[in-house]
Design a protein around this nucleic acid. Sequence first.
DNA 1: AACGTCTACAACCGCGTCAAA
DNA 2: GTTTGACGCGGTTGTAGACGT
Length: 270
Amino acid sequence: MGRAPCCEKVGLKRGRWTAEEDEKLRKYIQENGEGCWRSLPKNAGLLRCGKSCRLRWINYLRSDVKRGNISSQEEEIIINLHASMGNRWSLIAAHLPGRTDNEIKNYWNSHLSRKFHGFRPNPQFIPPPPPPPPSSKPKKTKNSNKKAKAAAKTATAAVVMPTTPTPEKESSVGRPGKERESEARESGSSMVGELDDLNMTEDLSGLWGPTLDFGTGSEISDPGLGQLDNSSLQIYEETLSWIWNDEDDKWNSNVDNGEMDGAMLSWLLS
DNA sequence: AACGTCTACAACCGCGTCAAA
DNA sequence: GTTTGACGCGGTTGTAGACGT
């Protein structure tokens, strides 16, 4: 089905937002609430595309957006969630209060994708629960329904899992060939174990459960697991064996095939 | 100081989804 | 059942500032 452009681009301003534009957008949304992005620019007196306004609001102007450096704890959450979800930035962002999908995506592309060409998922990792949705945010019924359905769908349907990234593709993000060449020489073909070198082990059990230990996939000394009931523990163990093959020390083939059982994913995300 | 290169991140683009008409 | 249009997501591009020579 053909799609009309989201807006009439002729005469619209592009590029960086000015403080004046930010103020107009902020003021309008404070008075009228979010939504109706298509008509918002006109009503707010902005020469911007509705999508651009939405992006600016969601990523920078919203009061609950956390600005500043990604903490080491947040970084570890990103790494582990990316290992199990792939480039599902919005899902990952849901576990990081105040962080947006765009910010996480940029952070991954500029910092983490080069740090970890590939790595084994941490079997002990249990993501923190997503924060409850802010009650003050008015939402159109249409969107609420869509969100609920999308969430239900995510929890039950098979999803595409990330394949092991190739060094070329992974290292090519926004990077010139010269650097890729030198990096390829330095890194060799090793795809596993860079995290071992980073000594990133950190006890975050006080936050959401098990100790995080990126480097030692098979050694489980995990206070958090002891708190799981039998059925959760069973799903957990099935998930681990499904994702990671300890014997071969590599992704299981079913991961590469790209499907994940809904119950497992649901449990991982719960 | 001038120039070239690199990096981080803000913003844009295209597409899929889904509700309403 | 089909079409339309808004929304949201993920990939990609553009660019300002930092850094190196």
